[in-house]
């Protein structure tokens, strides 16, 4: 085996010098800002904001100024339903062009069309009744206006609930496309 060739002193010195890790010049180092602490702060602030700010998603229901009497404003030239829902303390009273809708929503006559179920208002009953009335004649299918009135003490949440349930009814054949009932709301003034 051949003897390992040894470097001379000058060669070793040169190797030491050349293999030493290079020191960065002052203008070469610090080219990047150390933004890690900044990012820590920003992340903490972001987490704090996300935790404290409650994002509320809102929607708006469009409506028009109330009319005295609660009925339709002009004399219709064609047969119309002219649906009016009055929220009273006992339930929903419904009036249409044929007169007052009787309890059970099957005929005209005196009484509350959709009485309360116990202490709760029967919103689903109201929706089913509105759908039934709309289907009563082919001319009513294009009608989308409803007038809503209420007793003076009825809270706003109940009015919004009635508007919601009168807007549309689920379509069992196509759940993505509910059947439109009465999305256009007018407010009536009780005489």
């Amino acid at each position: 085996m051949a003897e390992t060739e040894k470097l001379s002193a000058s060669q070793r010195a040169k190797v030491r010098r050349l293999s030493a890790p290079k020191e960065l010049a002052p203008d070469e180092e610090g080219g990047e800002l150390n933004i890690v602490p900044f990012l820590d702060i920003v992340t903490n602030v972001l987490m704090f904001v996300l935790a404290t700010v409650s994002v509320t998603f809102t929607a708006t229901i469009d409506s028009y100024p109330p009319r005295a009497g609660g009925g339709a404003g002009r004399t219709p030239t064609t047969k119309t339903l002219s649906l009016t829902v009055i929220i009273v303390n006992e339930g929903f009273s419904i009036k249409a062009s044929g007169g007052n809708v009787a309890p059970g929503c099957s005929d005209t006559g005196p009484g509350i069309a959709i009485p309360k179920k116990g202490n709760d208002y029967d919103f689903e009953g109201l929706r089913d009744c509105a759908a039934k009335l709309k289907s009563a004649a082919p001319e009513f299918e294009s009608e989308e206006q409803v007038t809503i009135s209420a007793n003076p003490n009825i809270p706003y949440q109940l009015v919004i609930g009635a508007i919601d349930y009168l807007r549309e009814v689920p379509n069992p054949n196509d759940p993505q496309k509910p059947r439109r009932l009465f999305p256009e709301v007018n407010f009536g003034l009780a005489r």
Binding site: F57, T58, T60, D62, S63, Y64, P65, I160
Partner: peptide, 19 residues
């Protein structure tokens, strides 16, 4: 409130609700 708005030439209302 709605009546006063109507009398003051406000013809359309957007009732804000929680979605």
């Amino acid at each position: 409130v709605l009546f006063t708005l109507g009398q003051s030439e406000f013809a359309k209302f957007h009732l804000m609700v929680m979605q």
